[in-house]
Every structure is written in structure tokens, then in C-alpha cells.
Design a protein around this nucleic acid. Structure first.
Lengths: 367, 367
DNA sequence: GTCGCCTTTGGTAGCGCTGTCAATCTTCCT
DNA sequence: AGGAAGATTGACAGCGCTACCAAAGGCGAC
């Protein structure tokens, strides 16, 4: 049988097979399809592998089988909370299974995305999870030519490359505005940062809702390509106030901006929601415990990641899901920050929105 | 030369070599050590590879060379902002290089960590980044036996497995308390959640500082193993207030808790910092723009990730850093939320901390 | 002119595993 | 009992690349 061990001292499949008294190929089968073995051999191989502490060499397996057990995940940002939730779902779903996750970060560049996809695809991944539906034409055709299952996440669209899971950012944006309109607000501002495709579609939802209500006014809008932050929320809000001092409510494309707006209101002694309603997006954890509690559009990010990975793995293993496109929906979490005059009036008849609310007097900042 | 293409239609090294008019091994060398080729062959191989769109087969390379170009990263959480910053640094540093990142999440379990390390090590990674210094004995000996460079991140300790980059959580905790003491606060509470080893060490720093000042009192402390959140911050703070109504300041082990405390103070009309000072930890972005601006201990998370990956790659390639242990330090970002009576007195002589600050009167929550 | 040394190139032989297909053994009919 | 169908098992031949070592080429010194 020649050498017993590889020079590195590693246990190979051949050693396991020898100890179990079977051929290497039978031992190999044990790891890929245990049911194909007779019970006797199965237990013999199993205990031999355990005894020797055998760990399969993935490189050899990949080379021989001409496929890897790698799931590629292409996301635009590692910083954004949104994606860390999605990622957590993906990792949770893949945990314990045979597939390993390979992450790539496009930093919101579709050219970078194209490069990364080319790299991934060249390694024949078992499956791919990509963010959104706005790939370059080249990326799109690479994806369509790919032999592995693919899940597009975060958004919905009419022609999925393969599978798709997400929700309509357009509808979510509309719903946020519909809620504010129901609450009786008319001059509703829009605060947008980074303006990636998904933010863009929320923006379109805002525009549609405002136009339908005949309330659209470009002065109500402040956007920037700059990356989002709470501080930026305060800055943009200040700009918005300058542009449209009569504003009654703000829809922020994410919760960081909303938090910044809340703080800016506190700084300027603008009562929320009496003089300014605030609605955020994503419903991060802190929104519910802010003072006042901040309304936000809840999205199912963890579930999105989890389901995407689950669907993908099922598809890899030949069990394609019934529905190729899954809408995870969203929910407007109505909280105090968007309580409108209409509602307020019901509860406290009289001079609502007219009270002179005093905020705590604050010493000037120290740094 | 036999078959020209692999059945999958992929370009192999042999095709590149043929087009370039060199032997496969020479072409191989081009990708590993271009300087070893004569200029003529180098350019010929380069253009041949480009023309054919050659992408090396990593599995074959790994199998043949008996090593992978994978850097394993073991972190305890994917949700925690802290780690997303670290990860971003790691990915940024590895980008464009030959190494790919393989992530594993221990969920704060050192047993899980041991399992993951075993898995990683079995695949002979090029290098490893692990979080913290509190591995199991078994993990520790596996790491010590590993043939690849290893960087421990997040903390400092006296006996690194190999390299180490981080800061002293103990000293950071102490410094936060020292700052509050300097500001004249005496009854300083401690709010801790999740209580992982790093939080534990900040706690030890708190205890040491308080004992030295002869101010230690167990009633000032509220901790929980539960995962952290802003809402939890509010809850723990409420408990703390019950336990020690005369509290003057709170040190929160992270910024989410601090944000929750701020909101809870707003809810209870407790003036910050006049009646309650707040100090957080990590200095997330929103801390500076809160109202009042929240004091926090800044940590260099992105730099930590970036340097860890850079050091590791250098070491993998044989250029070991001069210093195996790097202290990235921290900084107490002193802001308004911890402005003490002593300072305040200097600026506004008289009844400081005695003013009756009015917060905006808020309607009751809507959900 | 010849030798020795250094640089550049090529040949050979796997790395550890699995796909394919054939061989063997069961089981259960007729 | 004979045989078909199915269940198990094994032999062989690579997967695409690189380690190792040998060979060839280039150059200056004596």
C-alpha cells in the first residue's frame, strides 16, 4: 500500500478506508452518501474516521468533483446594519451544513460587482447570493450563464435571474407616506443619503404618493450621495428646514438619518411629533425605545438572509422551491413620532401642536 | 498535446502556456513569482493569460501546493457593530491580494470556537485571525501547534499565541471612570450586558478605579448576560435607579446601552448631565450627535481589522513585523453628557445641578 | 578557450479525492 | 432452481496545478 501517511502527517481517506477494511472509494461514499453503504460498513467507516480524526481535504474534493461547496455572497456594504442582519441570517442557515460562505463587498459599485462575480463564477461556486437587481449587462449575462443556482436578495423585480427574495422598496416608501398622510400631514419632506438603487426606489414611492395627493414639491426633498450617518441626518434636516420652513413631517430613507433628525429637533427645541413628525426605515432596534418612539418601516432582514440561504441550498441539492420569487413584505411600525394632528386632536381636543413645549436647557457642547 | 480544453470549457494553465509558447511550469511560475521569468516570457505569458481570460483553479493549486490562500477569521458576533467595523478593516486590507477571507462566528461560545478552529486548521489556512485571548486550553494548544501565522485581535495580553493587536479593556474601563471622577462624580453606576471577556475586563477596570477612590458599592452595579440593545439599556438603568436612587453617573459597557439610558432619562425627565452623567463605550457614530452629545471611549476598530490583516499577510509572506504585539489604545471622547458639577460650576457659578429642567411633555406611546 | 557559477526553463510525478463503469452479492420472483 | 433486478462494492483514471530536481543557457575570470 506504499506510504501510510502524507508527509504532513495528515490522515487521508485511504487510511480511514484501510482501518475500516474497505476500499477508499467506499469510504469516500460514506462522506457523500452514507445511505448507499450497508449498515456494517457504514459504522466501520464512521468509527475509523472518528478514531483517526479524519477531516476531508476540501481542495482535493473540489478538484476531483469539479465543483466546490462554496456559496458566494455579494453585498454592497459591510458597515450597513442592514447587511449585517442579512449576513447573520445567511450564516445561520448555512451553519452545520456542508457549504461555506464566501463574502465579497462591492462598496456600492456595480463595476466592482462585475469583477467580483467574474472571480466567483470562475471558481464554480455551488450557489450565489447577490444583492439587488441592478447589475451591469455583462454581470447579468454572466449570472444567466452560470450553472449554479442564484438568489437575488433585498429587492423584487419582474425578471429574476433565477430565484429572488426581498420586498418592494417602492411600495414601502409609498406606505410610509400613506401613513403620514393618514395622520394628517401635508408638507412631508424626504431625506435621502447614499441613494443606492433601493433608496432610489423608496424615493420613487415617496414621489408617487406625494404626486397622487397633489402635494409634491421639490423643495421638500434633500438628498445626497454621501454615505449615511446620524450626523448627516441632522445636517440634511437643517438644509430641509431652510428649503421648506413650513415642513410638518420627514421621511428618512433609513433609521440613522431619522435618529439624527430626532436629535436635531431636540437641539432646536422642535417638538416631535407636534411640530415635526419623523419616519425612518428598517426599524432598527433603537427606534422603538427612542423618545418619542420613532416610527419606522420594518423590514425582515434576518429572515431574508436566512431564507435566501435555505432556498439556495435546497436548489443546489436539487429541490427547487415552488416559488422562485418570495416577497417578504414590510410593515409600517406606527409609533409616537408620527402621531398626527388628526389623531392627537381626538385625544386631546384643543390647542394641539400649539403648546409651547420646553426642552431641557442644555449647556453648550464640550468638544 | 491531447485535449485542448477541459470538458467544462475552462481555460487551463496548459492552454495559456501553449499560446505563450512556454512550458506549463513556466506559466505557473509567472503567477507565483513573475520576477523569476525573463522579461520576454513574462510578457508573453501575461498577454496569453489575458487573451484567454485565464483564471487559476484554486482547488488544484491548493491541492498541489499543500496550502491554501485562505485567511480564517473567527469572531464572536456578526450583529455587533464593533465586529462589522473590524471586518471592514480586514476585508479592505485583503482586497486585491491573493488571500480570501473565510469567516466563522462563534456566537460568544468558546466551545463553538474550538470546533471552528479545528475545522479551519484542518484546511491549512494561510493565516488566522482570532478574537480575544480566552480560548479553551484545547484551542490554545491547537493554535500553538498551527503552522500558520496567527493574529489575536481586540485585546492585549501577556502571552500571545503569535501576534496580537488590540487595546486594554481594563485600562479603557478605568479611564472612563477616571474621567467621571475628575468631573466630580462620586456615585458612578455600571451597566453591563452580555458580559463577554472584554466587557468583563472593562468591568474590572471600573471596579479597580472605584475601589481606589474608595467609592465602590455593589449596589451601583447592574449586569446581565443577555445580549445588548438600546432598550435593554433603558431597562437596566431603571433597575439601577431602583437599586441606587442617589446615582450621579453611569458607565455603560457599550453605546447601545448608553443610548437607551439617554432615552430613559428623557422619558423620566432626568436632565443629562445635570442629574445624570452618561458614558458609553466604542464611540459609535451617533454618540457625537446625540443631545446632549454622549461621552464615549473611542476604540480603533477599523484600524484593528486593517492592521491585523496587514500584519498577518506580511507574516504569511515571510516578513514578520518588528513588534508582535500592537497596542492601538483608546481615547475618552469627553462630551457634554459627562460634564460634571465641578466643570459646570466654573462656567455657571451658583445653583448648578439644582435647576429644574423641563423636558418636553410627551403623549403616551402609540404602540 | 574553457571552466564554474548563476539564471532561466522544463520534465516528472504526484497532491487526495471522486466520476464512471463494471463486478459482485442479495433478494425475490416465476 | 434459475434468473432478473436491485443493492453494494471496487478499479481505474484523472481533476489542474505545483514541488522537486535536472538541464540548458549566459557570462565573466583565468
Amino acid at each position: 500500500m506504499g506510504r501510510k501517511r502524507t508527509k504532513s502527517g495528515k490522515i487521508r481517506l485511504a487510511e480511514v478506508a484501510e482501518l475500516a477494511g474497505v476500499s477508499p472509494i467506499t469510504a469516500s461514499r460514506f462522506f457523500r452518501n452514507p445511505e448507499a453503504l450497508s449498515v456494517g460498513k457504514r459504522t466501520r467507516v464512521e468509527s475509523a474516521a472518528r478514531e483517526l480524526g479524519y477531516v476531508p481535504n476540501l481542495a482535493a474534493r473540489a478538484l476531483a468533483s469539479q465543483r466546490t461547496e462554496v456559496i458566494g455572497v455579494v453585498i454592497p456594504s459591510l458597515t450597513n446594519n442592514v447587511f449585517s442582519d442579512v449576513l447573520r441570517g445567511i450564516y445561520d442557515a448555512s451553519e452545520g451544513g456542508r457549504y461555506s460562505i464566501q463574502l465579497a463587498n462591492t462598496r456600492y459599485s456595480i463595476l466592482q460587482e462585475e469583477k467580483l462575480l467574474r472571480l466567483f463564477l470562475a471558481q464554480k461556486p455551488a450557489g450565489l447570493i447577490v444583492t439587488g437587481i441592478d447589475q451591469t449587462a455583462e454581470s447579468r449575462s454572466m449570472l444567466e450563464a452560470a450553472e449554479c443556482p442564484i438568489v437575488q436578495i433585498m429587492e423584487l423585480g419582474s425578471n429574476p435571474v433565477d430565484m429572488m427574495i426581498g420586498f418592494s422598496h417602492y411600495e414601502a416608501g409609498r406606505a410610509a407616506i400613506a401613513h403620514l398622510l393618514t395622520q394628517g400631514f401635508r408638507r412631508i419632506g424626504f431625506l435621502g443619503a447614499r441613494m443606492d438603487p433601493r433608496v432610489q426606489r423608496r424615493f420613487e414611492g415617496y414621489q408617487a404618493a406625494m404626486k397622487e395627493a397633489d402635494l409634491f414639491d421639490p423643495r421638500l426633498i434633500v438628498t445626497t450621495p454621501v454615505a449615511t450617518s446620524a450626523t448627516l441626518g441632522g445636517t440634511l434636516f437643517a438644509d430641509l428646514l431652510t428649503q421648506a420652513p413650513d415642513i410638518e413631517a420627514v421621511f428618512c430613507v433609513n433609521d440613522d438619518l431619522a435618529l439624527g433628525v430626532l436629535f436635531e429637533c431636540q437641539r432646536r427645541h422642535i417638538a416631535v411629533p407636534e411640530r415635526m413628525a419623523i419616519v425612518g426605515f428598517n426599524d432598527l432596534e433603537f427606534m422603538a425605545c427612542a423618545v418619542p418612539a420613532l416610527t419606522s418601516v420594518r423590514t425582515n432582514r434576518y429572515e431574508m438572509g436566512r431564507n435566501a440561504a435555505t432556498m439556495l441550498i435546497e436548489a443546489i441539492e436539487g429541490r427547487r422551491p415552488n416559488e422562485a420569487v418570495v416577497d417578504l413584505g414590510f410593515a409600517v411600525m406606527e409609533r409616537q413620532s408620527s402621531l398626527g394632528p388628526r389623531h392627537a386632536r381626538t385625544r386631546r381636543p384643543g390647542k394641539i401642536g400649539r403648546r409651547t413645549n420646553k426642552m431641557v436647557a442644555l449647556p453648550s457642547p464640550t468638544n
